[in-house]
């Protein structure tokens, strides 16, 4: 049995080698190459000294932070109220459904909604406001990114709240806590794991949504993802692109460590 299994698993190991380890190694390797293919530290040097890249990284992290924060503020109550509903499986399905629609189509919808003659401006005009340029601003980028990431924050929080043992709530009430105390001392700490995986699922993609910055942000917002796409596909400077890629990988690892599940202390 063992032999046959290993034989059948060969494609899987090949995949691990060729499509998981090799690409990461290649991107690290390329980050040390300049445009003519020589081994150099030039890319890292210009990343840290030119200022342009550091500001871009800071901006990208700042936007991702804002998107994650706003999504979290909207999602937590949503997930909490959803668990109180009667047919919650069905409602959750309605939250999931928009994620199955192509991201590009959703971004495209916002081009129409935020356009100078689009839905939002029509709405504003109705109340007597002059039409504004909404598309191609930081604001539109944040709203659309938030719209796309929202379900990915709601679902893990919902799952964490669902797993919560209801007898803990009764116990808290029996011990004299009111609703607010119960929420702060019992519900919130026990749903932290859901919040953490939600942050993970939103923050990392927010650093790299290059298609949104192009379509909605109008090149005003440059994220790490946009910079990588630009260096790889437009200016063809793969070395610098890989360097930014390495920065993105490091950012990802930091987020994963910060939001990783801590090992439970004591026995359970």
């Amino acid at each position: 049995m063992k032999k046959v299994q290993t034989l059948f698993a060969i494609p899987y190991f090949l995949w691990l080698l060729l499509f998981v380890f090799a690409p990461v190694a290649l991107i690290v390797f390329y980050s040390f190459l300049n445009t003519s293919g020589q081994f150099t530290l030039q890319n890292y040097d210009s990343y840290f000294t030119s200022g342009k890249y550091l500001i871009m990284t800071f901006n990208s992290v700042w936007y991702a932070f804002l998107i994650t924060l706003i999504t979290l503020i909207i999602s937590y109550p949503t997930a909490y109220f959803l668990t109180k509903l009667k047919h919650k499986d069905l409602w959750l399905l309605l939250i999931i459904l928009p994620t199955w629609i192509n991201l590009l189509l959703k971004a495209y919808a916002f081009i129409g909604i935020f356009g100078i003659h689009g839905g939002v401006n029509k709405f504003l005009e109705f109340f007597g406001f002059a039409p504004h340029q909404i598309l191609f601003t930081d604001f539109s980028f944040i709203v659309v990114a938030m719209y796309i990431e929202l379900p990915f924050m709601i679902i893990p929080i919902f799952n964490a709240l669902e797993e919560l043992n209801p007898s803990l709530l009764s116990a808290s009430h029996d011990l004299g806590a009111n609703n607010i105390q119960t929420f702060i001392k019992v519900v919130l700490p026990l749903s932290m794991n859901g919040v953490k995986s939600g942050i993970q699922a939103v923050f990392i993609p927010s650093l790299s949504l290059f298609m949104l910055t192009r379509l909605i942000g109008g090149n005003r917002v440059i994220t790490l993802g946009t910079a990588i796409e630009e260096h790889f596909l437009v200016t063809q400077n793969w070395g610098m692109g890989s360097t930014i890629g390495v920065v993105l990988i490091i950012a990802m690892i930091i987020v994963m460590i910060l939001t990783g599940e801590k090992k439970k202390r004591g026995g359970q």
Binding site: S208, G225, L248
Partner: peptide
Amino acid sequence: SANNILMVSPDVIIGASFLIFFTG
């Protein structure tokens, strides 16, 4: 965890590294 690397990597990184790999 090795299995999950591609699940958590940003799309751009997957795309860029595969591009290097395929061109190689």
